[in-house]
Design a protein around this nucleic acid. Structure first.
Lengths: 252, 252
DNA sequence: CGTTGGGTTGATCGACCTCAATAAAAGTGG
DNA sequence: CCACTTTTATTGAGGTCGATCAACCCAACG
């Protein structure tokens, strides 16, 4: 299994390289980055962001390609600049739990651990800033307010994870789907202005694997919400018709 | 509701004071603290720990008393020095999700937020070091390696929370109970030497509310494990008979 | 003792899963 | 641009795991 694991990693890296798209040098401009204030870079001054710039590499991934895989060595960390990513853990028998969806401004590699704690793959075309973990870590040591920012982002993730525990452990299927939509709406609202339209770059299966439900149940609950005029299902997402109603389903 | 909320907080604080036991001045000795290396203090030198000492207050709580409540202002943070604490979130209709059990060495208040993200109450007699959040936060600013330690602890909590998501979302009842025992065993092992005996200071109801199960199901699963000689149920805990078997239930 | 809180066990129920069929959408190649 | 396949989504019928409801046990404790 050890030797097999090594070759798995090697082939995964190769696959990643194959799916990874050309670098766009023009997109690499931290000073005019649209997600800078939302991301970890928001803690940095213009001069500091230039330092970060030197250790970063702008790159992108095609939809359905792999950013990294669980248990692989975590040599790099990422800052998402556009697109959506699913983060998941697999059980040996194939059951999957999605632990989160990363959107622009999100940071992948908060744990700064040797190994990736989960797998990540692109749901859409994704652009990122990539950093070597050691270089990034070194910069953290030198800039305490940068470290402080990372702590604040990690704490926030922990809070979201604890909220997700409540959803997974104690919510009904309908409440889970409602909570998912409200949670995603809040996150999109930070990025877009519009707020009743919720893009859903992930499949129903993904939503199910995030909420601890089957595809069929997710589909049925969305259909139910649509039938009672709480939402409308549109291509690539939903539109909220009755925000008050859906929010009342997930109170607290 | 606003006025009521304020009086709720006031009465909660009063209740806390009532349940809180006498300070034991002798117990307050960071230099000889048994959990120092496990806790956030492990990052500090002897001199630094003396500084921390000055802003800390040694205190304790009786079993079943409240340390703090969700949505209350989080003016203080705690380092658990002995005993066990349950951390939970309540839904308006009374459903409860336990988001974790805090053991000696654990830190409460990682989020460093204005409001508590969950409620905490003592399962046993509990001793703690209490810090004012602002004083603690100020110390973090001055000691980057202390901040680094807090980040590392927060990352670890996030990893545990993500593991718990897999358990809540994609595990069967039997697997949940097995995973709970294995997870707790690992945590006790850091503190005690013995490892096949797992103290369970929480009730079956608490275990259920941690795993997204009912009391009855938890009881049935424990009984099943005991019937097939995987564990023995003993007063205040369980003893593992077949570690390999129970570990195989939660592989990955 | 009687009371109370926790734990176990059994019988029944139902929310969600499984299995199956179909529909709709998105590629894919000629 | 149109057949063809593949993937994703929806809908229905039936089954099951864990919830619910209920009874009972037991130890702690005033």
């Amino acid at each position: 299994m050890d030797i097999e694991a090594v070759s798995d990693v090697a082939s995964a890296v190769h696959q990643q390289a194959a799916h990874q798209c050309q670098k766009d040098p023009l997109s690499h401009d931290c000073a005019h980055c649209r997600v800078r204030n939302l991301s970890i870079c928001g803690a940095l001054t213009d001069e500091e962001v230039n330092v970060l710039d030197k250790i970063s590499r702008s790159m992108c991934f095609d939809a359905r390609s792999t950013l990294f895989e669980q248990d692989e060595p975590a040599d790099v960390v990422y800052n998402i600049t556009s697109g959506s990513v699913r983060l998941y853990k697999l059980l040996p028998d194939g059951r999957r739990q999605i632990v989160g969806f990363a959107l622009p401004g999100d940071f992948l590699g908060l744990a700064l651990s040797e190994k990736n704690m989960f797998s990540a793959d692109a749901l859409t075309h994704v652009t990122v800033c990539q950093f070597s973990r050691t270089a990034f870590s070194a910069m953290l040591e030198q800039k305490p307010h940068f470290l402080r920012r990372l702590l604040s982002m990690t704490s926030h993730e922990l809070t979201l994870a604890q909220d997700q525990m409540v959803i997974l452990g104690r919510r009904t299927a309908e409440e889970k789907v409602a909570a998912f939509l409200i949670g995603l709406r809040k996150r999109w609202a930070r990025l877009n202005a519009t707020s009743v339209h919720i893009p859903l770059p992930m499949t129903r299966q993904d939503i199910g694997d995030f909420l601890g439900l089957t595809v069929e149940t997710v589909s049925r609950m969305l259909t139910r919400l649509a039938r009672e005029k709480t939402i409308v299902i549109v291509p690539d997402g939903v539109r909220l018709l009755d925000v008050a109603r859906i929010e009342s389903m997930v109170e607290n």
